Computed example of a mutant assay.
Amino acid sequence: MTASAAERSHSALLALSVGDALGSQFFVPENRPAYEARMLPPGPWQWTDDTEMAASIHLVLCEHGAIDQDALAASFAEHHDFDRGYGPSTGRLLRLVREGGDWRTLAREPFDGMGSWGNGAAMRVAPVGAWFAGDPSEAARQAALSAEVTHPHPEAVAGAIAVAVAASIAPGKPSPGAFLDEVLERTPQGTVCRGITEARKLLTIGDPATAAAVLGNGRQVAAHDTVPFTLWAAARHLDDYERAFWTTAAAGGDIDTTCAIVGGIVGHPPAAWLSGTEPLPRWCS
């Protein structure tokens, strides 16, 4: 039986949450030995803002069948838990939306009216790609709508589009080169797109540290510093969540976010990893 759009989105959300929650454990100093030995630290692993925001995307898709921007902004604001690790800019935006502010104005305040170019829109968008599996053009359109609510800068939007397209086509298990070629076909021109072009050239390189030295690893918390590397990692391991995770984590940087992106694209985490991850919030079921 073919999975429904809601089932596919929920599956991507679960896979994203595992990458996010497990990736976040390697910021804890006492877990570093486990990370270096590729062993799992003690659970349960708590997810971060990446999963919380992705859960709102899944909820809005289930309620509307597409991205309704006002509904998404309201859900982001309502479910915003400061302790989940939100960046200061996004945290402020969501607080002001709760107080009655207009997200359309607030989201464009950073960067002289361009909005944030952070990786926040890319980190949460995999459920959009899964919902529109096999329809990468619509996945790209809906991803742009989801990004604009908090990250309207063209580079942040491009990062979200690239990840959503990747999640849309990943179930077909294309070859690494074909995978990135299709993502590039739909990613707007700019720094993110150029980074993915570089990632395409590095597919024969197996060392994540080398790839990250060229592409970034999310340390700058920017779309262009995050998305190209995650797509490189996903492209090389579309059929193996566990290898995709460890490859991504090995590069360091913004590990919870890079692993959330890769996890959401690749999907199907090991059952033991799912059981070690904090359950999704009840409100998104």
Rank of each mutant, 00 (worst) to 15 (best):
A164D: 14
A222Y: 10
A235W: 06
A199H: 08
A199E: 07
G91M: 01
D83C: 00
A234D: 02
A212D: 02
D256W: 11
P154T: 04
V125C: 04
E63P: 06
V192I: 05
G263A: 04
A233N: 09
Y35W: 15
P188T: 03
E278Q: 15
T51I: 12
F229D: 02
W273A: 05
A107W: 09
L13Q: 01
L94F: 13
W246Y: 08
L184W: 11
G100M: 10
M123R: 09
G19P: 06
S4W: 04
L14G: 01
R141Q: 14
G87D: 06
A209I: 10
T105R: 11
W45M: 07
R236H: 01
R236N: 03
P127F: 06
I57N: 06
D102K: 03
S56R: 07
L14K: 07
T197G: 15
A66E: 14
A234S: 12
G115Y: 07
R243G: 00
T150S: 15
R38N: 08
V97H: 09
A122Y: 09
F179N: 06
A162T: 02
W47P: 01
T105D: 10
T90V: 14
V221H: 01
S24M: 10
A77K: 06
M114I: 02
V125W: 07
A170C: 08
A55N: 04
I169C: 02
A271G: 02
W273V: 00
G267H: 05
L280A: 01
T191E: 15
F111H: 14
T90R: 08
H237E: 00
A34E: 11
E7T: 00
A121P: 05
G101A: 14
S17Y: 05
D81N: 14
T90Y: 03
E138S: 00
P42E: 12
C62I: 08
D135Y: 06
S4E: 06
E185Y: 00
E278I: 09
L215F: 02
A213R: 13
F132D: 04
S89M: 10
I169S: 03
H268T: 12
A140K: 03
Y35S: 14
W246Q: 01
A73F: 12
T90S: 13
D112L: 13
S168E: 08
Q142I: 06
A144T: 06
P136E: 05
L72N: 03
P174D: 11
A15L: 07
L96V: 15
D49M: 08
S146A: 15
S285L: 11
A212Y: 05
P44R: 15
A54H: 07
V227Q: 08
L61F: 00
A222V: 00
A73R: 12
P110M: 11
P110A: 10
L61V: 08
A233I: 03
A209V: 12
P42T: 02
G65K: 10
